[in-house]
Write a protein that binds this DNA or RNA. Structure first.
Length: 563
RNA sequence: GCGCCCGUAGCUCAGUGGAUAGAGCGUUAGCCUCCGGAGCUGAAGGCCGUGAGUUCAAAUCUCAUCGGGCGCGCCA
């Protein structure tokens, strides 16, 4: 919620009112865009409304701008606020608004009063949204690729919650497929190996060392009793034992990575409750599926897909895709107004057919978003870390977390758009210098905390949230810039939420921390002789602390009082 | 061949039609009698892959083209 004495909102509303009353024949959905100009001589807020209106009204934009400016200048609400210093017209029709120190002082009061709610928005109207992420099959430990998806999914969920959505986090497990079957056979092979018998790991089996540990555990618990059981009879046991064990490990790794799910959804649920069959039946009845070559095909070409897709193979076994059609139908049946899937980027070819499936089963594909997560290139001091897929030995998420910590790992995973590749340098992530943005930001937070501690050590009492900050403080450009960034926080949240883009927040934090450090270097706080100036600056850094803390919380990164 | 993503400073990348395209790293010149120097300030560095088009306005939209990645299975 943006504070009522926020000049941005005041201006926005007033300007739109003026446009509505001064000009005719304007589309009802016309709303002026505001932005923070890059250059000091362009004011603090500017709008291109006159240029956009020029097109509609077929009039010179400068004439329109002059009319708007005159109306703004004579507006009583704006005059009484004392927030506006002056309004200028710039070519070819920009309206540049210069704000007074009083505005910035008021903005700081807003942050302090709203505290942890500052920046929270109601974009979702408490509608239900599901974020499904990670969803790695429990056939092996999570690798760093999963970790990036985990961080992105988790932060998207946090941001959606902060912007008024009712969020559910879900992890989907394909426990019914061939992969799990392979896991069972691979574990059984290791069991035989450890007991000194002939063994053969299946062609598409899992060769990782972790299965030896699990096989050893089985030997310790159950001895040699499975040596004489035929493979087809014992594979289910090995599959379930290994799968559960690995899933426990995944949950443990996720917990250490500060990620918890509301629900683990298993594919077998779809089979047991006949949901796949009923979805297939629905498609057939509506003429969206047909039989050919002994298989059942989905007519996805009717829904903008490249080609039709097999749902049930000639051998009678349903495909992964058939389960996904039923699964996504089930998601919407569960009442989600919106469904978000986080996938590895190599699955992008799959989007069109899942959307087709959603549409064919009677739901709106517009309510479905896929976030694609690109590769992570792991580096150490600039050199690529060998990640050969030869034996499935990706670097495990857990190894990275153990080496550089959860905070740095999460933060680095979130510094780039999720659909572009990411270079992750372990040495930089471990560094405790300004080279490392995590420490740079955490240091700003700890530094503010340190100043506040020192203030109290001197036996002083914190100023009230509504303490009137002397406007002259904002004659300093570092102070202006810092508070201007605070006023942008709700916009950044909105941007991150609407575009499902966590990297917006990491970028914002780096800027905010930088602006704070610059401010700190040029503005003496505790040792400032003028008491009111000192307290005013103190309240500014208290507000900065709130926003850094809030944003770090959204990223799931710790905000330390001391370092 | 068809489809999707990406080409922006030496490197890694921001930039959802606006003014003089930004940040970090790297290079380089400076700032500690002072609240946390784990910090700050400055400089150098760009035909935004290329060519057309739409627009008052294009890194951003359209088309073409060249480079890089990925996907196109009765696999998951």
């Amino acid at each position: 919620m943006i504070g009522e004495n926020n000049a941005v909102v005041l201006l926005h509303e007033t300007l739109n009112k003026i446009i509505a009353s001064e000009f005719e024949n304007i589309p009802s959905d016309f709303g002026a865009d505001f932005e923070h100009p890059k250059h000091e001589n362009q004011g603090d807020i500017s709008t291109n409304a006159a240029m956009r209106l020029a097109k509609i009204l077929k009039t010179n934009p400068k004439i329109i701008a002059e009319k708007i400016i005159a109306a703004l200048n004579s507006n009583d609400t704006l005059k009484n606020s004392g927030y506006i210093e002056k309004i200028e017209l710039a070519n070819p029709g920009f309206i540049n608004i210069f704000l007074a120190g009083k505005f910035f002082a008021g903005a700081v009061n807003d942050v302090l009063n709203q505290n942890n709610n500052y920046g929270a928005l109601n974009l979702g109207n408490n509608k239900k949204v599901q974020v499904e992420f990670v969803s790695a099959n429990p056939t092996g430990p999570l690798h760093i690729g999963h970790g990036r998806g985990a961080a992105v999914g988790d932060v998207v969920a946090r941001v959606l919650k902060f912007t008024g959505w009712d969020v559910q986090r879900e992890y989907y497990i394909n426990d019914a497929g061939l992969q799990m079957e392979n896991l069972g056979r691979s574990t059984r092979a290791r069991y035989f190996e450890l007991l000194g018998h002939d063994f053969e790991i299946p062609e598409n089996g899992y060769k990782g060392e972790y299965l030896k540990d699990i096989a050893q555990e089985i030997i310790n618990k159950y001895g040699e009793k499975f040596l004489n059981v035929p493979e087809n009879e014992s594979v289910a046991f090995f599959r379930d034992y290994a799968g559960n064990k690995i899933l426990d490990g995944i949950k443990k790794d996720l917990k250490e990575f500060r990620i918890e799910f509301d629900k683990y959804f298993v594919e077998s649920y779809l089979h047991e409750n006949n949901l796949i069959n009923s979805a297939m039946k629905f498609l057939k009845e509506n003429n969206y599926a047909y039989e050919a070559d002994g298989a059942l095909w989905f007519k996805s070409t009717d829904f903008d897909d490249d080609k039709d897709r097999v749902l049930i193979r000639a051998n009678g076994v349903s495909t992964y895709f058939a389960a996904d059609v039923a699964y996504h139908k089930n998601k919407f049946d569960r009442g989600f107004a919106r469904v978000i899937d986080v996938w590895g980027a190599d699955h992008h070819g799959y989007i069109a057919r899942v959307k087709a499936g959603i549409k064919a089963t009677g739901n709106d594909p517009e309510k479905f978003d896929v976030l694609l997560i690109q590769l992570v290139n792991l580096l150490r001091g600039g050199e690529a870390v060998n990640m050969s897929t030869r034996s499935g030995e990706f670097v495990e998420l857990n190894e990275v977390v153990n080496e550089v910590g959860t905070d740095a790992t999460r933060f680095f995973f979130l510094t780039r758009r999720s659909d572009s590749q990411l270079d992750f340098d372990l040495e930089i992530a471990k560094e405790q210098t300004s080279n490392n943005p995590v420490y740079y930001i955490q240091y700003a937070y700890a530094r503010i905390s340190g100043v506040l501690r020192e203030f109290e050590n001197r036996g002083k009492i914190l100023p009230d949230n509504n303490f009137e900050i002397p406007a002259e403080i904002f004659n300093n450009k570092d102070a202006r810039l810092l508070v201007e960034l605070l006023t942008k926080y709700p916009d950044e949240i909105k941007n991150a939420s609407e575009n499902l883009a966590p990297h917006v927040l990491t970028g914002y934090l780096i800027n905010l921390a930088g602006a704070f450090h610059a401010f700190y270097n040029t503005n003496v706080i505790l040792n400032e002789p003028d008491e009111k100036i000192s307290l005013g600056r103190l309240n500014i850094i208290r507000a900065v602390k709130i926003v850094i803390g809030s944003c770090l919380e959204l990223l799931g990164v710790n905000a330390p009082e001391r370092m």
